[in-house]
């Protein structure tokens, strides 16, 4: 048991090492230089550029830069090119803003996708099944930014509530009740938007998984011996159909960064995705690289958690015969 975890951990660390090299070289070898961000500024002399390059280690050879970068990242000395703030502090701030969006979105996704998928599978070929199938393809194909604008127009025109940003600007000193209400209104639209695609995809998976399970022999046996169908489906079949989704739960973690760029940009939500987008615009390499690194860490932690959960819920998985495939 322990050796399996150790092996898995070492494997993941090696993967992380390669990821750090690749993302570092992708960013550093791209044409252009952060010191050229404002080439037309007459106050920017050649000496200034040299001084800046020195201050940010850009004058050193790449392997040295790589070493210095990750050393600084781990010792929390890394500073943003743009405003000289510590990178980790900036990321933590934005992370706390992204968290409610992510939590509500994930909660919505999981709470709605499962009932939809299960019902669609149990009533195969019914009108309900056909319409959920059609609507899930519809929402998978619908660009989130398009839907966002349709909903913004709709909500603003019909309900007349503000939707952009974290909270209404300039109303910080009102009563706490109003403040909470305001916060919730601002949270609803972006989290619904980030959940919709997930609901569509996940309910398809749940449906096909459920279909697979209810055609198994043990389900037929249970039905044949006269158990009530609800017991068979919701107790026996559902448990087995849910197994693969335990692993997917770990894989939702990376959505914290990558999945939110567009939604956060539209709603001016000061979260991680928006931070990454601004960093890319400003060629703020330390921030871009740190975000990439953290995202990769989240993926690896997610797969680690899902391995762990899988073993807890499925006794058939044996540790020794675990083979990568």
């Amino acid at each position: 048991m322990f050796s399996f975890w150790a092996k898995s951990l070492v494997e993941k660390l090696i993967t992380l090492f390669f990821i750090s090299i690749i993302s570092f070289s992708v960013v550093m070898l791209a044409p252009g230089d952060p010191s050229e961000i404002d080439p037309l500024n007459p106050k920017f002399t050649q000496e200034d550029i040299q001084r800046l390059r020195k201050a940010f280690d850009l004058d050193k050879p790449l392997p040295v830069q790589y070493y210095l970068f990750y050393k600084k990242l781990f010792t929390n000395e890394l500073r943003s090119y743009k405003d000289n703030q510590p990178v980790l502090k900036k990321i933590t701030e934005r992370f706390l803003n992204s968290l409610p969006l992510f939590l509500v979105g994930t909660l919505l996704t999981w709470c709605l996708a499962f009932p939809l998928g299960i019902q669609a599978a149990l009533r195969r070929q019914s009108l309900f099944d056909r319409s959920t199938t059609f609507f899930s393809y519809f929402f998978i194909s619908l660009p989130s930014f398009f839907l966002a604008y349709v909903l913004i127009i709709f909500i603003v025109k019909v309900f007349n509530v503000p939707v952009i940003g974290l909270q209404t600007f300039g109303r910080e000193s009102v009563s706490w009740w109003y403040l909470i209400n305001d916060r919730i209104w601002h949270l609803v639209l972006p989290s619904v938007l980030s959940a919709i695609g997930g609901i569509a995809i996940l309910s398809r998976y749940v449906r096909s998984q459920m279909l697979e399970v209810i055609e198994q022999d043990y389900v037929r046996t249970a039905l044949a011996k006269g158990l009530p169908p609800d017991t068979v489906y919701y107790k026996h079949a559902l448990r087995n159909a849910l197994l693969p989704f335990v692993t997917m739960f770990g894989l939702t973690l990376p959505g914290l960064i990558g999945g939110s760029v567009i939604i956060e940009s539209i709603f001016s939500w000061p979260g991680m995705g928006r931070l990454g987008y601004d960093a890319i615009l400003a060629r703020d390499y330390p921030l871009i690289l740190s975000l990439n690194f953290i995202a990769a860490c989240l993926v690896l932690v997610g797969t680690f958690i899902s391995d762990l959960l899988y073993m807890v819920v499925d006794p058939r998985i044996s540790l020794i015969s675990e083979s990568k495939g």
């Binding site: 990376p254 990439n292 995202a295």
Partner: peptide, 15 residues
């Protein structure tokens, strides 16, 4: 392991 959209965005923006 790469967050694909963020990676694509980074590369496309830098090139």
């Amino acid at each position: 392991c790469f967050p694909s959209f963020f990676l694509i965005l980074t590369v496309v923006a830098l090139l």
